[in-house]
C-alpha cells in the first residue's frame, strides 16, 4: 500500500498509452465514424430529394395524362364533326348527281320522242300521200303538192 517507484512506471505507461491512443487510435476511428455519418446524411438527403422528384414526376405525369385525354377528346370530337360533314357533303353531291342524271334521262327521252314523232309524221305523210293517190287515182306530183303535204304535216 506504500507509494514507490511503481508510480513513476505507471505514469510513464499512462502517458505513452494516451499518446498512442491520440496518435494512432482516435483519429482513424473518428474519421471513419464521421465519414459514415456524412454518407448516411447524404444518403438521407438524396432519398428525400428522390422522393420529392418522384412526387413532382407523378404530378407531371398526371397533368400530362389529363392533357392527353383532353386532346384525344378534342380530336375525336373533330373527327366526328368532320365525318358528319363528309356525310352531308356526300349526300348533297349524291342528290345533285341524281338530279343531273334524271334531267339527262328526261332530255334523252324528249329527244327520242321528238325523233319518233318526226318519223311518224313522215310516215303518216307518206301514207297520206299514198292514200290520196289511191283515192284520186291519179298521179300526183308529190313535189308539186309538197306544200299541201307540208300543211297537213304541220296540222298533225
Amino acid at each position: 500500500m506504500n507509494i514507490n517507484a511503481t508510480l513513476i512506471g505507471q505514469f510513464i505507461a499512462f502517458a505513452v498509452f494516451v499518446w498512442f491512443c491520440m496518435k494512432y487510435v482516435w483519429p482513424p476511428l473518428m474519421a471513419a465514424i464521421e465519414e459514415r455519418q456524412k454518407k448516411i446524411a447524404d444518403g438521407l438527403a438524396a432519398s428525400e430529394r428522390a422522393e420529392k422528384d418522384l412526387e413532382l414526376a407523378q404530378a407531371k405525369a398526371t397533368e400530362q395524362l389529363k392533357e392527353a385525354k383532353a386532346q384525344a377528346a378534342e380530336i375525336i370530337e373533330q373527327a366526328k364533326k368532320r365525318a358528319s360533314q363528309l356525310v352531308d357533303e356526300e349526300t348533297q353531291r349524291g342528290h345533285a348527281e341524281r338530279e343531273k342524271i334524271i334531267a339527262q334521262g328526261y332530255a334523252e327521252i324528249d329527244a327520242e320522242r321528238n325523233r319518233a314523232k318526226e318519223e311518224l309524221r313522215k310516215q303518216v305523210a307518206a301514207l297520206a300521200v299514198t292514200g290520196a293517190e289511191r283515192i284520186l287515182q291519179r298521179e300526183i306530183n308529190a313535189e308539186a303538192q309538197a306544200d299541201i303535204v307540208e300543211k297537213l304535216v304541220a296540222e298533225l
Binding site: Q10, A13, F17, V25, W26, L29, A32
Partner: peptide
C-alpha cells in the same frame, strides 16, 4: 501491478488500433 496494467493497456491499444487501421466507412 505493472505487468497487469501495462498488459491490459496494450490489449486495449492492440484491439482498438487493429480496428482503427481496418476501419471502414
Amino acid at each position: 501491478t505493472l505487468a497487469w496494467s501495462i498488459g491490459l493497456g496494450l490489449l486495449f491499444l492492440f484491439i482498438f488500433k487493429r480496428v482503427a487501421s481496418k476501419a471502414t466507412t
